[in-house]
Nucleic acid binder design. Structure first.
Length: 454
RNA sequence: GCGGCGUUAGCCUAGUGGCAAGGCCCUGGAUUGUGGAUCCAGUUAGACGAGUUCGAUCCUCGUACGCCGCCCCA
């Protein structure tokens, strides 16, 4: 039994899973680039006030759930629980509000929340996200929603529903809250304890309570849509009309409010509808909305913003649940092995030109029998074995054996790269500097590997 | 963070207050140095700690981790 375990709510991504995550990352990031959202990286640790101020002190996400960090006895830091506030902090810190607007960012980072873990809900989890600063237009809201909808279509995720609502802008919401508070206060006795508390802290949250007693009271509450200002209604109408025109399916859920206080107007959630997930209640695979006062809240000028974030872990499992196959982590296409015991350097010299050429080459660095080495090559998923140190492969020759066709040829060393190339594809070698005219392609779902360009 | 249930080898599963069983995987050997088959052999286990008991993997308590519900949320 291992003495150590990963901390509660944290886990290892073994190569098969890590490969799937990498593919998801590649797809989402590439889509981000296509939409003009370059990647921004922020630290894992932030001043905890960044989140306290932005999310609202009464929000659990910012309070009890925060993963505090102490260094040399000094606190005040926390592992980031979400991306938007951190990105906004960076946006301000680097004066990007003075850069040409709008500013758009993509991120893909681990997030941390100090909640008790459950299936697909870890203390460390991954999120991709988009933030779009500097536009109050409904079409900016539509863009991030359409992005996400298109992303899921691209990935093959079908079992989800887009839920939309508007919770009004800050000045207007004061009146809304007033009306709702008055209504719920008059039904105070019928409410759950938690909701009674929220009467004074965050009335809107009463609307999405799961408690059946609350739901009954909520059913008779004044509709949010009738309480909002004309400007809010107009904004939301344009969002929904645009989405309809773009063919994005959605459902307006008037009780949808978000847990974080910084949202204004549009809020959205992409909720999984697969029965495997709905038994535990709604699980969101992405969620976001507009935050027109967040920049100001964090000490900046008045600047509007809108964003969305998605859970990578949830997305990964939802895709698997739907039977979307992501490629396993192939260890090697080519296995170099030898019948001679002490020729490690020779094996490496044999592998090097193959690796330079772009093949995935693993070397058997054991001294077991050729028998076992060959067996091992198969078990590690190699298509081709390159064998040295046998009768036939002396004098600058090696055997190139196709492990599936069970055919082999004795080849001169100089011709090994060409011979191996007859059996397995080369992988795309990443380059530090773009080659002129070369468009990189990153395959996602299983399919042929694009041939290397010349 | 609160409550409930769980934890037997790398994985899956059996069983018991008195030597812990099997399958898969892994390692080695053989079929007289070219592989996935077959045969043979081998390594490895009751999460951790304390208590009750002549004796605990089994009963009790605590801790760790997981799952379910709550809270919350990706």
């Amino acid at each position: 039994m291992p003495t150590f375990q990963a901390p509660r709510g944290m886990r290892d991504l073994l190569p098969a899973e890590a490969a799937g995550f990498d593919r998801l990352n590649a797809v989402v990031a590439a889509r981000g680039e296509r939409y003009g959202y370059p990647r921004l990286v922020t630290p894992v640790v932030e001043d905890r006030n960044v989140f306290l101020k932005s999310a609202g002190a009464t929000s659990d996400a910012a309070g009890q759930e925060m993963y505090d960090v102490t260094l040399h006895g000094q606190g005040g830091l926390a592992l980031r629980p979400e991306g938007t506030a951190a990105v906004t902090r960076a946006y301000l810190e680097h004066g990007l509000h003075r850069a040409p607007q709008p500013q758009r960012f993509f991120y893909w980072e681990p997030m941390f929340r100090g909640q008790r873990p459950q299936l697909m809900r870890w203390r460390q989890f991954w999120q991709w996200g988009l933030e779009h600063f500097g536009s109050t237009e409904p079409s900016a809201d539509v863009e991030i929603i359409e992005f996400t909808n298109g992303l899921f279509a691209e990935l093959g995720l079908t079992a989800f529903e887009l839920q939309l609502n508007t919770i009004g802008d800050t000045p207007c919401r004061a009146k809304v809250k007033e009306t709702l508070t008055a209504y719920f206060a008059s039904h105070r006795d019928a409410l759950s304890e938690l909701s009674r508390e929220r009467l004074s802290t965050n009335v809107l949250r009463v609307l999405d309570s799961k408690d059946p007693r609350d739901r009954e009271v909520v059913a008779g509450a004044p509709r949010l849509s009738t309480l909002l200002c004309d400007a809010d209604r107009a904004h939301f109408a344009e969002v929904t009309e645009s989405l309809e025109r773009l063919g994005v399916r959605f459902r307006v859920v008037e009780t949808l409010v978000r847990g974080l206080d910084y949202y204004t107007r549009t809020v959205c959630e992409f909720v999984l509808t697969d029965p495997e997930f709905t038994k535990a209640g709604d699980i969101a695979v992405a969620a976001g909305g507009r935050y027109d006062s967040l920049v100001e809240t964090l000490g900046g000028p008045s600047a509007p913003g809108v964003g969305i974030a998605g859970g990578v872990d949830v997305l990964y499992y939802a895709l698997k649940q739907q039977g979307v196959t992501m490629p396993d982590a192939p260890e090697a296409d080519v296995y170099v092995l030898s019948g001679e015991p002490n020729d490690g350097a020779d094996r490496t010299q044999l592998a090097t030109p193959l690796r330079e050429a772009g093949f995935r080459v693993a070397i058997d660095h054991t001294r077991r029998s050729l028998d076992k080495q060959l067996e091992s090559a198969v078990k590690h998923g190699a298509r081709v074995a390159v064998i040295r140190g046998t009768e036939e492969s002396r004098g600058g020759k090696v055997i190139v054996r196709d492990l599936i066709k069970k055919e082999q040829r004795v080849t001169r060393l100089a011709a090994v790269v060409v011979e191996v190339g007859r059996h397995v594809p080369k992988r795309v070698r990443p380059r530090l500097i773009d080659e002129p005219g070369a468009a990189g392609e990153t395959p996602f779902l299983e399919g042929p590997t694009p041939p290397e360009r010349h």
